[in-house]
Write a protein that binds this DNA or RNA. Structure first.
Lengths: 170, 170
DNA sequence: CTCTAACGGTTATATATTATAACTATCTCG
DNA sequence: CGAGATAGTTATAATATATAACCGTTAGAG
């Protein structure tokens, strides 16, 4: 779907994607900038931490190729076999409309499936396939390893405290 | 631009946007679901906290109508008058291409402006307008009030500890 | 028992955010 | 001077999130 390749009008002269300014996730100013009060704002710190966290997650999960939301959905289905889509959406704060393509993808990959709702034929009961169970099992292992690296940085107590504080914000 | 109104084929029979499933930001399951290991994952807790944080930010900042990134950019410009766009981008982890419309908007609203770069005429030196200074001043007050509410929830020490832990993740 | 309102899931679409490539004008340095 | 790098811009893609309306089904009031 890469239309970018279509209009390659001249030669690739711009190698910035690897340069100083491109691909920057964490702050990497060319000269140190003053952050002023921003440096002490919880919201800002949260944002940066979350970006770093997602990046770490994706790296850790490369092998199983799961995005955070997919991972959460699979986990929730495993923990609650037969759940309805609406329930998963409500639990994770997803829009039911957006959940459809997400679940389609999981189904296409043979990880989860919709079973006919009984007795309510409107609803579908969600289950993991055997393959889904296996992949999620591996994903959980990888994720645990990652959490351990986090704990190594924060200390086990620090990690617990962080969880506690974050939950208070929600 | 609301094309949705164009294809109003029948009558609005669906009032779900206000119902149980719609507009859900935080988890609100119809029946309690088991979250399994998800409940103890830093990444997941971060995600939820960040969503709540942005929501709180937007609410607190209604009066000045600033999004988190706009607020950060204005703050950074105030603290470093004359900075170049690239520097702000690097500091905040923004893409220079995405920064253009963002800054255009701030300029359109008369909050910030690009001055000719001296001596490098490629670059633009960013400054706040007087109006920008005033608006940011008010924004900082509102933001401080919000941080105080956060501190009330977490305790002052808790808030400090949270900041410290979050920075370790970045 | 029937009719109506609500629900579960789907589709289509809108909007916001972030990412990538390539372009112009300008600057730097051998 | 000329080649390559840089600052900013444009155009576009990919992703994430939000809203409205639809269908088939269900439940509950009367």
């Amino acid at each position: 779907m890469s239309r970018a390749a279509d209009h390659a009008r001249k030669k690739p002269r711009d190698s910035e994607s690897e340069g100083t300014a491109g691909r920057v996730i964490e702050a990497r100013p060319t000269r140190p900038l003053r952050f002023g009060p921003l440096a002490d704002y919880v919201g800002y710190a949260l944002r940066r931490a979350q970006i770093a966290s997602v990046a770490g997650f994706l790296e850790a999960m490369q092998e199983v190729d799961l995005r955070p939301t997919q991972f959460a959905v699979l986990t929730l289905i495993r923990e609650n076999p037969g759940v309805r889509q609406t329930e998963v959406c409500a639990a994770l704060g997803l829009q039911k409309a957006n959940f459809v393509p997400l679940l389609n993808e999981l189904q296409r990959r043979g990880l989860a499936l919709r079973k006919a709702g009984v007795p309510d034929r409107r609803s579908s009961a969600l289950h993991l396939t055997e393959h889904g169970e296996a992949v999620l099992q591996r994903a959980l292992e990888l994720h645990t390893q990652w959490e351990e690296r986090v704990a190594a940085r924060l200390g086990v107590a620090g990690r617990e405290r962080l969880l506690e504080l974050l939950r208070k914000l929600t």
